[in-house]
């Protein structure tokens, strides 16, 4: 039977510890828990991004397992190479995991990821989605949502911040007919850990897209990180779903959505939004959910 993960079954041993991420960082929580689920024999590949910048500060090294920083565009390729190397050396019982940010996945690293899925290499790829390039000082990425203020999409009289919607990365990955793909949120940690377990057991490439708030980039208080990630799912601006055996499955289908305004108003990146902008965000959400509810099973 598949191991079910919760706070009680999780190991006390930390495999990602003493890192220099900002207080209340959602992304570091996702890495910490994913490493615990994957275990001590996991090999991690991280491109340029917050998670490598906060853990590989020589001579500090926050991972207690093997980990490597990859060139920005090649998380998928380096992870593939590591899996091939382990196979060639006959080292079994190990897992190769790539942790990339939203920019490192949806923009810069998309071709290496696509190649890895195409070859169906035995890797777990985790995209930590905090909706902008946070490590370099909050620039817009392909996963930055509409209305979000970043340093490259400033909000002003003419523009409401980012004018594009989030790239549909989960479905782009699923379109490769990948062995296993899922979306998750640090607001629903048991769900996230069990998806990592499923990815671990999958032969071939698996992809998990985890939604992780960033107090520094989003401008919210550090203590509400987990709450905010949960709110995003409850208000419908993020969704929990899986793709396996060629079919999409919606894990959580709220009867009624929580308030989008409540989610947006606690973040300074959305502070400037007008009621028309919020209406547009809600309209896009409803379109997306109508499509998911029509085409995906529950």
């Amino acid at each position: 039977m598949t191991q079910k993960w919760n706070a009680k079954t999780l190991t006390n041993k930390e495999l990602f510890y003493g890192h220099k991420a900002c207080g209340g960082c959602g992304e570091s929580l996702a890495v910490r828990l994913a490493m615990k689920v994957l275990g001590e024999k996991a090999f991690a590949a991280l491109p340029a991004g917050c998670m490598s910048a906060v853990s590989f500060i020589y001579p500090n090294m926050a991972f207690t397992t093997n980990a490597i920083i990859t060139p920005f565009a090649s998380t998928g390729a380096v992870a593939s190479g590591m899996a091939a190397g382990l196979k060639a050396l006959g080292i079994e019982d190990t897992y190769v995991v790539g942790f990339a940010g939203d920019g490192g996945t949806a923009d810069i690293g998309i071709q290496a990821l696509s190649g890895a899925i195409d070859r169906n290499d035995n890797i777990v790829y985790i995209c930590n989605d905090n909706e902008a390039y946070m490590n370099t000082g909050i620039q817009k990425s392909g996963l930055t949502p509409y209305g979000s203020k970043t340093t490259t999409t400033p909000a002003g009289q003419n523009l409401p911040g980012s004018i594009t919607m989030k790239k549909n990365m989960f479905e782009i990955v699923a379109a490769h007919d990948i062995a296993y793909a899922a979306t998750a949120s640090v607001g629903y940690l048991e769900d996230f850990m069990n998806k990592v377990q499923k990815a671990k057991e999958t032969k071939g490439t698996s992809y998990i897209h985890v939604f992780a708030p960033c107090p520094t980039g989003w401008g919210h208080e550090t203590h509400i990180t987990i709450d905010l990630a949960k709110q995003a799912v409850d208000c419908g601006l993020w969704y929990l779903a899986e793709y396996e055996n060629g079919a999409f499955k919606l894990n959580r289908n709220p009867k009624e959505f929580a308030s989008v305004e409540d989610y947006l108003k606690v973040q300074s990146r959305f502070k400037h939004l007008t009621s028309q902008d919020v209406a547009l965000i809600i309209d896009e959400r409803d379109k997306k959910w109508a499509k998911m509810r029509r085409d995906w099973t529950e």
């Binding site: 706070a7 006390n12 890192h19 900002c22 570091s28």
Partner: peptide
């Protein structure tokens, strides 16, 4: 479970916080 820094230790009879690495995020 929710600590981003993993500073809360559950191995003892009661929870213990590693104040060397707690960032006080709340």
């Amino acid at each position: 479970l929710v600590c981003p820094d993993g500073v809360i230790d559950k191995s003892g009879p009661q929870l213990e916080i590693d104040y060397d690495y707690c960032k006080g995020c709340g």
